[in-house]
């Protein structure tokens, strides 16, 4: 699905319009606009403290924005009526330890007009055997699965997943990914945060990169991956090479003096060939593949700051 935040004919299920939220002096979200259409699976990517969780808490109606508007399924998320179509995962550490698994699911399901029957849901997530266990006695992976069960019990139209698989082993992670894909395959809308590129890569069709309270990129998964899978060409030259063909971004050019420049390009071979054939003077050439993490870190670095 091609992301287009301004599709007028399909009303967005999640809509943030110029939203600002501060915590004291810290600006957690700075004039953020984002629209998620029905059936989209959007990955919110960003380092810790980027504002991802604040964004989700606004959509879940837990906080109100200082400026701008947040809409969930066309209504104010702080109005309980808007939240009948919302599914949220609790943090795994936050389950009431003395309640049994089935009791927690019954309690949460009791808030919705047409909940999934508890035994059915527990069986689906492989928790059927543990129905009578107190949640305090579950393992980390079991708690995660229960958290996802609690998000799904109300048959939500929008699912918010905050770091759904952090700290899980490979098998458990894969099983949860399958559950999320299945929900999305049936037409559900998913907004998930992660600081793992891998997770977003495995699930999302559209990626929104958030850093320091602002949206740095909002594109299809492929486009964002292309953007982050850049090569880094480092060399010393007098001429400013930022404008060479294929250079996406450049740093460190001097003013007519030899300077160590860093050039980012999707195709390092073509760039070097171009430099050689056009006779540009350079020395100490280094080419490094920017790792995904590295390229991602570059992408979320403050604009204009060369580092």
């Amino acid at each position: 699905m091609t992301p287009d935040p301004h599709r007028a004919h399909v009303p967005a299920v999640v809509h943030l319009d110029h939203v600002t939220r501060r915590f004291g002096d810290v600006v957690a979200l700075d004039d953020v606009s984002l629209a998620v259409g029905p059936g989209e699976l959007v990955g919110l990517l960003g380092p810790n403290g980027a504002g991802k969780s604040t964004l989700l808490s606004l959509v879940a109606g837990l906080r109100r924005p200082d400026a701008g508007t947040v809409r969930l399924l066309g209504g104010d998320p702080r109005d309980p009526r808007s939240r009948t179509g919302l599914g949220v995962t609790p943090q795994e550490t936050g389950l009431p330890a003395t309640l049994r698994v089935q009791e927690v699911v019954d309690f949460v399901g009791g808030h919705f007009p047409d909940p999934v029957p508890t035994p059915e849901l527990l069986d689906q997530l492989g928790l059927g055997e543990l129905a009578r266990r107190q949640t305090g006695a579950l393992s980390g992976g079991q708690k995660r699965r229960l958290a996802v069960a609690l998000a799904l019990v109300g048959r939500p139209r929008v699912l918010l997943l905050d770091e759904p698989t952090t700290g899980l082993d490979v098998g458990a992670r894969q099983a949860l990914w399958d559950a999320i894909r299945e929900y999305h395959g049936a037409g559900g809308t998913v907004l998930l945060t992660s600081h793992y590129l891998e997770e977003v890569q495995a699930l999302a069709e559209r990626v929104v990169v958030v850093d320091r309270g602002a949206v740095r990129a909002d594109d299809t998964l492929d486009a964002v991956l292309r953007r982050v899978s850049l090569r880094r060409v480092v060399l010393t030259a007098v001429e400013d090479l930022a404008g060479r063909p294929g250079v996406v971004r450049a740093e460190g050019a001097g003013d007519g003096t030899p300077a160590r420049q860093t050039l980012y390009t999707p195709d390092a071979d073509a760039l070097v060939r171009d430099l050689v054939t056009t006779g540009v003077e350079f020395h100490d050439l280094e080419i490094r593949g920017a790792s995904l993490e590295e390229a991602f870190a570059e992408m979320v670095a403050p604009e204009g700051a060369a580092r």
Partner: peptide, 27 residues
């Protein structure tokens, strides 16, 4: 895991929440 159970319900955008008395009793 089968799809139908987790399928989202399509109709109304804002389904009415349950009556307050029922929710109070649940809590």
């Amino acid at each position: 895991m089968t799809a139908p159970t987790t399928a989202p319900t399509t109709p109304p955008a804002t389904a009415p929440p349950l009556p307050a008395a029922r929710l109070a009793w649940l809590h």
